[in-house]
Design a protein around this nucleic acid. Sequence first.
DNA 1: CTGGGTCAAGTCCAC
DNA 2: GTGGACTTGACCCAG
Length: 299
Amino acid sequence: MESTSSNVGYACINLSLQAEKITTNRGMIRKTFLTKGIGYASELALKNVTDLLKIIDWNLENGFRIFRMSSDIFPWASEYKLAELPDFPDIRATLEDIGTRPIRLTVHPGPFNHLAGQGSVLDNTIKDLEYQSELFDLMGLTPSHWNKINIHVGGTYGDKEATLIRFAQNFNLLSAGLRARLTVENDDRVSLYTVEDLVPLSETIGTPIVFDYFHHSLNPGSQTEEEAFLTAYNTWDVRPVFHFSDSRQNHEDSTARREAHADWIYSPINTYGKEVDIMVESKMKELSLLRMRGITVTV
DNA sequence: CTGGGTCAAGTCCAC
DNA sequence: GTGGACTTGACCCAG
């Protein structure tokens, strides 16, 4: 459901509720899945979805109107169809309930998704992404970039441009709903993709670019932050979602990897006069946003 | 009940 | 060449 002004949200985990065992990350290792099968997967999925609704309602009560869902709500989702789960009727009813809430939901599927990949890598990617899209369908949400399914290109295979062309070709293998939801994000390492690198892809397949401020700072290419921000901004057909985090190395632990995210947020977020939604990626989750409130509002 | 070892997936990179 | 990291550590079991 669309809201009319900029929002700030966080990803996957609510630390306040996690302390009360309210979580959407219940899963199992392979051995357990092989022993217990989809009956147990169904049980965990129902608990995850039930808790997802609780987290969403907590968000609304606390003024958070955008949230990134975990990609692991359904354990071993690639191994069955959702409708096969014994608890599917309850799961579906809960997802429908979630779909009525006035909050912008997004997902960021795992780093194993490589749409430019080949063979089983590509097959697994399509399966995973389609399942994420099906979740939004079950929530009754019309396919659009409002509920983005955001991924990285995931690798260059030794040839950045050829890989983007393969990504664009494989994009045509996806369902219409998934194509309407997919977005791509700039990478944090210089061997991978800057915002500028992703522009031709975006122009070819109409997929908006998610601008990640921190990744840009580590891999700016030839653009300033403002230029990359505006380049990405102009690829969107709804209000963008951009990612923000601070550097752990600069703010908390000088020995940390340069790509590591800080626990908290220290810097103001410059949105260059534009209305955008901000997905904050900090280890302290909603706590960092509560602490940030009133200090760094420059939207 | 907890600490430690282990855990689906692909790619890149530091060691 | 191995292991860690990635959008998020969680699961399992021996003790």
